[in-house]
Simulated scan of single mutants.
Amino acid sequence: MSRRDLTLHLGLVAVLFLLHFILPAYHHGVLARIMVMAVYAIGYNIAFGYTGLLSLGHAMFFGAGLYGMGLAGLHYGVPAFPAFLIGTACGAALAFVVGLLALRTEGVSFMIVTLMFSQVAYLALLYFGAFTHGDDGFVVPDASRTLMGLSLSDEGTRYLVAWVLFSGALLGSLWLIRQPFGRVLIALRENEERARLLGYDTKRRKLAALVISGAVSAASGAAYAALFGYVGATFAGVQYSIFALLWVLLGGAGTVLGPFVGTLFMFYLIDLATGLTDAYMLIAGVALVGLTLFAPQGIVGELRRRFWKDLP
């Protein structure tokens, strides 16, 4: 890992920390939400951007973390941090099981299989509505939203916890990609057959990448439940898998900063368009089409192509 790479990413972490003290209340809350959802995008980027696993089912991992944390607090009164760990472990375990089956396929088949698994998970949440509360969702109890005596519903605490989670995911992603394991993942994305000929166990590496991706995505879901206090089946729907794909593509698949930039761009694009017209999705759609046409590698991907060739 070069000093320049580390300085750039630590610089972003420092800027986000300073914004905690100067942002107005509305943007303070929006940025906290963006950081949590950017962690979800970072998890997706590990599977898709770096390993080449195009999944349409990542919402099930986010939902596993969300429900793992929320249900542990609602039904069993588990405190915030242990409930967060339970949610993250649920996502990792689900990713392992799904990976064992889905990685028997490749390409479009893998995409379809993950979509089907995601739909099964979503329908299961609805079917067991007596336990999960289905589409109605539920509010996480206050007792499970307290960390070291601090209420996670407090705006300042919420922002700082989201910042800690995002910083860990961002720097952890940077470290992972600069390790030999991360280099192998990139090799799998570029030419899996060649990587196999070099002696790498490609299926085992892809399974490991999917489990890591699922765990990071689940950590985002668990944090969302803890910080914003609501759990609902909508978050496990296919649209949230598409959101993750969209954020990564907009920011730049296969870049460490891309998931955050894409999430930030999409959140504020829709927010600004909503203030102009009821047809805000039309404005968002036109802007996204334009970005796709003129920056096909995403915002950070284009910066890497034009100005910083070795940007991770």
Rank of each mutant, 00 (worst) to 15 (best):
G156F: 09
Q297Y: 13
R194A: 15
G298S: 07
D310A: 12
R178K: 12
L185T: 01
H75V: 01
H28V: 07
L197N: 13
P82F: 03
A83V: 09
W163T: 09
S151R: 12
N45I: 02
S151M: 00
G149C: 05
A218V: 09
M60Q: 13
A80L: 14
G70P: 04
G285T: 08
A209P: 10
S241Y: 03
F110C: 02
Y122E: 12
F61Q: 08
A223H: 07
L250C: 11
T274N: 14
A143D: 01
Y224K: 07
Y76N: 00
S217N: 09
D136E: 15
G258T: 07
L123Q: 14
L23I: 06
G70R: 07
I299N: 02
L150S: 10
L303H: 00
G73N: 02
D5R: 11
V161H: 06
S55W: 06
G49F: 04
Y127G: 02
A218P: 00
L246R: 07
L171R: 04
A287S: 10
L249Q: 10
G49C: 05
A38K: 05
I212G: 04
G57W: 03
A41F: 09
Y127L: 13
G172I: 06
V164D: 03
Q297R: 15
G254W: 03
S118M: 15
P82I: 02
F48Y: 12
A32P: 05
L291T: 11
Y26A: 13
Y26W: 10
L165H: 08
A93T: 12
A209Q: 06
C90H: 07
R304E: 02
S241Q: 08
G57C: 06
M148Y: 15
Q119Y: 09
F81E: 09
I270A: 13
L246K: 12
A226Q: 08
G73P: 01
T234V: 13
G29R: 13
K309I: 11
L23N: 02
S217A: 15
Y127T: 11
T255P: 03
F96K: 00
I212A: 11
L174G: 01
V238A: 12
I299W: 01
V113E: 09
V261H: 02
T234C: 00
T51G: 03
E190Y: 08
A124H: 03
M37R: 07
T51E: 01
G70M: 06
T7H: 08
G262V: 04
H28E: 05
D201W: 01
I46F: 02
A209S: 14
G221P: 06
F62K: 06
V289Q: 08
V15I: 15
I283Q: 03
Y26N: 11
G182F: 04
L176G: 00
M111R: 00
Y200G: 04
L176A: 07
V238I: 15
G137I: 07
L66A: 12
P180I: 10
L160Q: 12
I112A: 02
A72W: 00
L276R: 10
A102I: 05
L174I: 01
I34M: 10
Q239D: 14
G65C: 11
V289F: 09
F181T: 11
R196T: 10
N191S: 13
K206W: 10
G258P: 05
L100C: 14
L126V: 12
